[in-house]
Each structure stands twice: as structure tokens, then as C-alpha cells.
């Protein structure tokens, strides 16, 4: 029951969607540039920007209590830690 949430107009939603489509186009375009190692990083960075847009607007995180965003860090930090620690093995084996 959040009144702020109701203020997102259809136009704003369509704007976010357009941004997501454009970003998809950019990902495909960047991949064609053959940037080597950098291309993985840009691809993941763009994906993360897209995800943030979806989270904040489509999933209304921007309008929820701060608790939701704080909680969201739990799985992200956990996953990052798990991957990081596993790679201490993978890189140095």
C-alpha cells in the first residue's frame, strides 16, 4: 500500500523498457568489437545496469522500504564471496 508507487506512469514504464532494449542492442554491438577480456566485463556491466533498472522500477524496489534493498545485498554478497573464494583455488591450482 504505497502511494508513491502509483505515481509511476505508463510512459515511465515504457521509457525504462526502451532503455532496456537499447542496452541489449549495445551489448550485441560491443560483443562484435572483439575487445578481448574487456568484452566480458562490459557485457556483465551492461547486464548489471539492466538488472538494476528492472529491480528499481519494474520490481518497485525504489518505492519499497529500505529494508528490501538491504536484504537484497545478502544473496549478492554471499554469491560474490562464494565465487571469489572458489577462485582462490581455481586460479592458483
Amino acid at each position: 500500500m504505497n502511494d508513491k508507487e502509483q505515481n509511476i506512469s505508463t510512459g515511465a514504464y515504457i521509457g525504462i523498457w526502451a532503455a532496456l532494449i537499447v542496452l541489449t542492442g549495445i551489448t550485441v554491438w560491443v560483443a562484435g568489437l572483439h575487445l578481448g577480456n574487456l568484452s566480458t566485463i562490459t557485457a556483465l556491466a551492461i547486464a548489471t545496469v539492466k538488472t538494476t533498472l528492472v529491480l528499481l522500477f519494474f520490481m518497485h524496489l525504489r518505492y519499497e522500504k529500505p529494508l528490501f534493498i538491504i536484504m537484497l545485498f545478502a544473496p549478492i554478497v554471499t554469491l560474490a564471496t562464494i565465487i571469489g573464494l572458489t577462485f582462490v583455488d581455481v586460479w592458483f591450482r
Binding site: 541489449t24 551489448t27 550485441v28 560483443a31 562484435g32 568489437l33 572483439h34 575487445l35 578481448g36 568484452s39 566480458t40 557485457a43 556483465l44 551492461i46 547486464a47 539492466k50 538488472t51 528492472v54 529491480l55 519494474f58 520490481m59
Partner: peptide, 21 residues
């Protein structure tokens, strides 16, 4: 929320599977 998460997973799957250069 569930549907958007399915979307988010795909947002990562797409570059990781289709766009490896």
C-alpha cells in the same frame, strides 16, 4: 516479482552464452 527475476536471469544468460568473444 517472480516473473521479473526470470527476466533478470536471462539478462545475464544472454551475454554469457551467446556473446563470448
Amino acid at each position: 516479482l517472480y516473473w521479473h527475476l526470470v527476466d533478470i536471469v536471462w539478462i545475464y544468460l544472454f551475454p554469457l552464452l551467446y556473446l563470448i568473444t
